[in-house]
Design a protein around this nucleic acid. Structure first.
Lengths: 341, 341
DNA sequence: ATACTATCGGAAACCGCTTTCCTAGTCGTT
DNA sequence: AACGACTAGGAAAGCGGTTTCCGATAGTAT
């Protein structure tokens, strides 16, 4: 492995001049530059990032902290999408991505602080899980930039999140436009911030149609498919069941579809079902699930951009939510009552 | 951010002595050690990895290369499991994990070499995709250790893989024990090494029961659910259809279940179905899919261990395949013919 | 008392690159 | 001819640790 000194010797210049060439700095004659570049190409020289980092006080590495608890907010493919987005943006800046998973948020928090203090990473992206508290406590005490993907309690922390509100608005409007008036809702308890937002979206969309969310049409799950099935059955067992059900995440929507099947109801003919997230299985379900797509890739890109802005010392402008998208598939249709009328 | 010099000044010793304490080396009196440790605790000093790495010629970072093409071998959750395994093992050695995804294997290969040469990472784990060729070419030309998760053409490359052969053996034996004699098989084309191994397992298990794999009972898909459905229909449309179908990956098995449903066949009563991988959806299917679990976590751990052995200059012993596990669920049962007989 | 060894601690070189500052040379101006 | 401005290139001082080597002291054996 050649060092900068060897390159300098071979090109008969000083290391300082080689450094200028490598970093595209001026005050090197065209001829000298060419000579050095040839030597670099011949030897396959790649500057040592750790040496470079040492003098520049940068590691050119971004950290991605994933407090990987079982009750995590996001489904796995979504996480991979986020990583792809961060990676893509990081690559543009010649940054690399370091992954740190941990069982509990508390562990992840201390690991993150260690990584920052030991200057393995220059900045960190934290994926929100239900309990972000350990992070905010540990990370606000140090100066390196960090960004949360999700929602945060403290207003001071920089966050990037999808337009959960807008997505729910779109989905609900879609059902209303199809003619549904009795719309069941499945939320969860405890309710993460994202679901809170979605709930607001539903309320406002109903409000636009001069409807109010009927408490009797709200069921509560725990985000799992099983809980969705149970909640769905509860709604459908009512004397006056809803003609459509909006589950605030896809997995619970799957449960609803299963509950409907058990009761002999056909989706979408007898019951429309809408989910949220657009996890990969959603398209494979029969019927394919109408849902709101979480823009994982875009979230990753936005988080990385924000981080770089902070690293560059630029005051980041207020960042709006990343647009979500309604994906129309086969699980929604006009209600039967309309067809009859 | 305190440096080792500041710690030395505060503890009234030299930086060399602080270094000894930090690295748990002898020749420091108990009293001095205690004094230094107190200062470290008070200041929250964490040694700079890049400075340490510079003098030790180690970065304490492992690279994970994922050539993320659409036709990748593994489903996403499996990849996350692998990462968890590598991470867990790396943490034991105080190593971190750097993630590098790329669209094409060729890009990933050059990225990997750059990362190694610029000593951002000390060693690399490469996840096998269909075309490993660019990697083997680029990586064999440099000295840093690297390991492939999967199978490799060259015998010289270090590989870690699941016991695909053994898993297929177990699954086939299971069907034979239930009494199935006409077993359909769904493989893919092009056929990755892992599937080749699985095919051998099937052959040998059948051989144990003095049966041979009937070419007429082999259908070919492309690993996708849709192709599995088509292949399944093809097998079931025969005049003398199989009583069980073994799809060499879960997604194709899903397709088989769907094909069976379309033909009015009930799983497992009229048809037993077995998959391979145990992706997360397998347990959610109705009926839940009997399948062979890929030990993602164990694979990651094994790959990391092998890498550390290479880093330590130890000649790694020949590593056997990582055991797979047959997961019995609801999609297999004795054939109808047996019940009648 | 002397020689030898083990323990404790520090001075200084070094890892490979960047960066500041300096010198020397070349122009263009007045 | 003298002066400044700009260019090309290099010497050397870091960046923040580790490591080698050396000296001083204390303990043990002869």
């Amino acid at each position: 492995m050649p060092t900068i000194d060897e390159i300098a010797r071979l090109a008969q210049v000083s290391p300082a001049t080689v450094s200028k060439v490598v970093n595209n700095r001026p005050y090197v004659s065209a001829e000298t530059r060419r000579r050095i570049e040839r030597v670099i190409a011949e030897t396959g020289f790649v500057p040592s990032q750790r040496a470079r980092g040492l003098s520049q006080r940068r590691s050119y590495v971004l950290g991605l902290m994933v407090p990987y608890t079982s009750d995590q907010l996001f489904s796995d493919p979504h996480l991979l999408e986020i990583m792809r987005g961060i990676e893509a943006e990081a690559n543009l800046r010649e940054y690399n991505l370091l992954l740190s998973t941990a069982r509990a948020p508390a562990d992840a928090a201390s690991a993150c602080v260690r990584l920052l203090r030991s200057d393995v990473i220059d900045a960190a992206v934290v994926v929100e899980t239900l309990d972000l508290q350990p992070f905010t406590v540990a990370l606000t005490e140090q100066t390196a930039p960090w960004v949360v993907i999700g929602y945060a309690q403290q207003a001071a922390t920089h966050t990037v999140h999808a337009d959960d509100y807008g997505g729910a608005l779109l989905a609900t409007r879609h059902l209303l436009e199809l003619g549904h008036r009795r719309i069941g809702l499945i939320t969860s308890n405890p309710r993460p911030f994202a679901l809170e937002e979605r709930l607001c979206g539903v309320r406002d969309a109903l409000g636009e149609a001069d409807l109010v969310l009927d408490d009797a049409l709200i069921a509560v799950g725990d985000l799992s498919t099983a809980s969705g099935e149970q909640a769905g059955r509860q709604l459908l067992d009512r004397s006056h069941p809803p003609t459509a059900i909006f589950a605030l995440n896809d997995r619970m929507a799957f449960g609803v579809v299963r509950a409907a099947a058990d009761l002999g109801l056909r989706v979408p003919d007898d019951l429309s079902v809408v989910g949220f997230d657009d996890i990969s299985q959603a398209a494979l379900l029969t019927p394919a699930l109408t849902t709101v797509r979480q823009p994982g890739y875009a979230l990753g890109v936005a988080a990385a951009r924000l981080l770089f802005a902070l690293l560059d010392g630029k005051p980041p402008g207020p960042l709006g939510p990343i647009p979500t998208e309604l994906v129309l598939r086969g699980s929604t249709a006009p209600p039967r009552t309309l067809e009859r009328g």
